[in-house]
């Protein structure tokens, strides 16, 4: 499902002293099949944007009480917001938002805090039962839960009957993700899926997302402020800053503009920092900022450098 957003704006607590514009005229297109990254500070509007995607935040024009704005004389009408997800028109009142939520799965930050049922099976089945047409049989439900748990790397027979609250943090998060993908959404949105995990847990989650991207969900959208995560995994990434999209580019082009990102107060991946350090020492390295490619490019250059100046290369992983 292709996602098209144009002129999207949103203000929290409008017309009050607490009014805060979270999105200002955001336009962004996400193609089907992308592993899309969304980067930005807290308060940059990234969470607000993704909550639009499954109708948790509605466009004004899709609300019941919406009145069409009238054009003032001499002033053209400001462009109206557009948001479509596949065939769903989110600006339309008649859109079936339940069907939309089935196709756009949303994993919130710290999703393990949304677990509530007595057993892992019941919790994972919650979404499946809610979205099912009619009442699914026990066999159907169990099959769906089994598949979803298997997809996140948990064995059904071991975990289905356990209480989700007895699991470890990483397992809880997997169960929570299983509870979202159980409806087989076409688009999966994750808000900081690796937050609060140790490096190994982070890598496991990202590997899991790639697996889901290959096997379950055509499009994966990841909100993150971990630049290494974005550089390693995404096909494209959008930078949100103060409610606007500063750029939407593939990581290899995005992180070439490291200076601009730093100016926005954002971090850049370690590989980009190393490239910049090498650049200062007169070594131009053209890599796509994934660790693998970076190491390969460095090793390609290393023998030639070593001929002239042994040991001139900065140690791997160190700040140049």
């Amino acid at each position: 499902m292709r996602i098209v957003a144009e002129h999207l704006s949103y203000t929290y607590n409008p017309k009050s002293p607490f009014a805060a514009a979270a999105l200002k005229d955001v336009s962004l297109t996400i193609e089907e099949g992308e592993f899309f990254g969304i980067i930005g500070h807290t308060g940059s509007g990234k969470s607000t944007f993704v909550q639009h995607l499954n109708g948790l935040i509605r466009l004004p024009s899709s609300l019941k009480r919406y009145k069409k704005p009238k054009a003032k004389k001499g002033q053209p009408l400001p462009p109206q917001p557009v948001l479509t997800v596949g065939t769903f028109d989110l600006a339309d009142k008649k859109t079936d938002f339940r069907a939309l939520r089935k196709s756009v799965g949303m994993v919130f930050q710290y999703p393990e805090y949304q677990l509530f049922a007595e057993t892992v099976r019941d919790d994972v089945a919650f979404g499946f039962k809610n979205f099912a047409d009619g009442k699914p049989t026990k066999e159907e439900t169990d099959a769906a839960v089994r598949a979803a748990l298997a997809a996140v790397g948990l064995d059904y027979d071991t975990y289905a009957e356990q209480s989700p609250f007895d699991l470890s943090g990483g397992q809880k998060r997997r169960v929570a993700i299983a509870g979202v993908i159980v409806t087989r959404p076409e688009v999966l949105v994750l808000d900081e899926p690796a937050a609060g995990l140790d490096p190994l847990g982070k890598r496991e989650v990202m590997e899991l997302l790639h697996k889901l991207h290959r096997e379950w969900c055509k499009t994966v959208i990841v909100v993150s402020h971990d630049m290494d995560e974005i550089a390693e995994n995404c096909t494209r990434a959008a930078v949100f800053s103060e409610g606007t999209v500063a750029a939407a580019l593939p990581p290899r082009e995005l992180f070439r503009r490291a200076d601009e990102l730093t100016a926005l107060g954002l971090d850049v991946p370690l590989t980009a920092k190393l490239c910049a350090g090498l650049m200062r020492r007169g070594i131009a390295l053209d890599c796509d900022f994934t660790t693998e490619d970076f190491i390969r490019k460095v090793l390609e250059r290393a023998p030639r450098r070593a001929d002239r100046e042994p040991g001139a290369l900065p140690p791997e992983g160190g700040e140049a």
């Binding site: 909550q51 949303m106 919650f126 809610n130």
Partner: peptide
Amino acid sequence: NAQLARGAN
């Protein structure tokens, strides 16, 4: 919101 996203009514 999280439960709404999972189809809670």
